[in-house]
């Protein structure tokens, strides 16, 4: 078979930690190149937790062989968060010398000898759904356990092109240009909102009121304005057919570091406000705050009227006529009441 790239195929280890396998399955949806081309032309897919034929000690043996023989040459891809609770025992990836090999241990060891480390998916990049509050497994993203640069390719799941493109870039040209969150700028350079097909509806104030309305999703919680990804242009999956807004639903911001805690509820414009013991949506909070203000002012006003203070104020400042008042001000005859409110 003809090589996809003139460069030799680098060995790749794809390790699954606390994951749903959605990112690897999404990568399988890649159209050009497809999975067959990926494993025969582009990379030497030595280890894959999901699709590798090897199981048991054969599988852990492959991990050992690659790290020893190909030190500094292999690309390490991690899919999933890394639990730290009880020394990482909340995710075990294999056995070593009869003892469980935790994901935490494996990532640390494999990460040290890799040429590049790629975090595939939002879980591996930023924690994602499995590290969401209250984070029962005390999971952290890959970058938190490695002392070296991790290329983050977030998405829940990743669009096949994002991962395939990053791999091709690594093989052909080395590390791609990254943004402040170490995401490749070629895929995460613009907000969804800036390149959205429904931007015109937003500008003209035509908004969907419920899922299934074919207009701008802003008012039913679309996180497009604060989400960096090229979904509107690239679309999903292999054949680039659709994406959530085209399917008349809001973007839920799955490539963002704060997903899902920082941008939930998905159908609300702003994330929840966390008050002690209760989560409350931002709009509800605003309504409550507004009502409390109005209530406070009304009560005070009623008090002021009942105690006669309002009447006093008006009488004092208006009854004397402008000239007399002016004089009184200058002469400071009214100086007893120095501090006022205005």
């Amino acid at each position: 078979m003809k090589q996809f790239s003139k460069k030799s195929r680098p060995p790749v280890i794809w390790l699954g930690t606390n994951t749903c396998a959605g990112d690897m399955l999404s990568l399988l949806n890649s159209l050009e190149p497809g999975y067959q081309s990926l494993i025969t032309d582009l990379i030497d897919f030595r280890f894959n937790y999901l699709l590798g034929s090897a199981e048991g000690d054969t599988a852990t043996g492959v991990l050992k062989a690659v790290t020893e023989e190909q030190r500094g040459k292999y690309i390490l891809v991690i899919e999933g968060t890394i639990p730290t609770r009880t020394n990482g025992l909340y995710c075990v990836v294999g056995n070593r010398d009869g003892k469980p090999l935790t994901a935490l241990q494996a990532v640390r060891e494999l990460g040290g000898g890799a040429r590049h480390v790629v975090a595939a998916g939002t879980c591996a990049s930023f924690g994602g759904p499995y590290a969401a509050a209250p984070n029962p497994s005390e999971s952290v993203p890959v970058q938190a356990v490695l002392d070296r640069k991790v290329i983050n390719v977030p998405g829940c799941p990743i669009n096949p092109d994002w991962m395939m493109g990053t791999l091709v870039h690594l093989v052909q040209y080395g590390e791609p240009e990254l943004d402040g969150f170490n995401r490749p700028k070629i895929f995460y350079g613009d907000t969804i909102h800036d390149i959205c097909q429904r931007r015109a509806y937003f500008e003209d104030g035509i908004f969907a009121e419920k899922p299934g309305d074919p207009w701008c999703m802003y008012k039913i919680g679309c996180k497009g304005p604060v989400t960096y990804a090229d979904c509107p242009n690239r679309q999903w999956s292999g054949e680039h057919l659709s994406w959530p807004v085209k399917a008349n639903t809001p973007c839920i911001g799955c490539t963002s570091p704060e997903f899902p805690d920082g941008d939930a509820p998905f159908f609300e414009h702003l994330p929840d406000i966390n008050l002690p013991g209760i989560k409350i949506s931002a709009n509800r909070f605003a309504r409550l705050a507004g009502a409390a203000t109005a209530f406070g002012i009304s009560i005070h006003l009623i008090g002021s009227i009942l105690t006669g203070r309002v009447a006093d104020t008006i009488k004092k400042d208006f009854s004397g006529g402008i000239s007399r008042k002016l004089l009184s001000i200058i002469k400071n005859t009214d100086g007893k009441r120095y501090g006022g409110k205005n």
Binding site: S237, G238, L241, W243, V245, A247
Partner: peptide, 22 residues
Amino acid sequence: IEISRLAHDLVTLLGGKAPFPH
């Protein structure tokens, strides 16, 4: 692999993306 991708594209057509259709 092609065919299962096609099946996922069916999900995408009506669900916006796959996996995790909206």
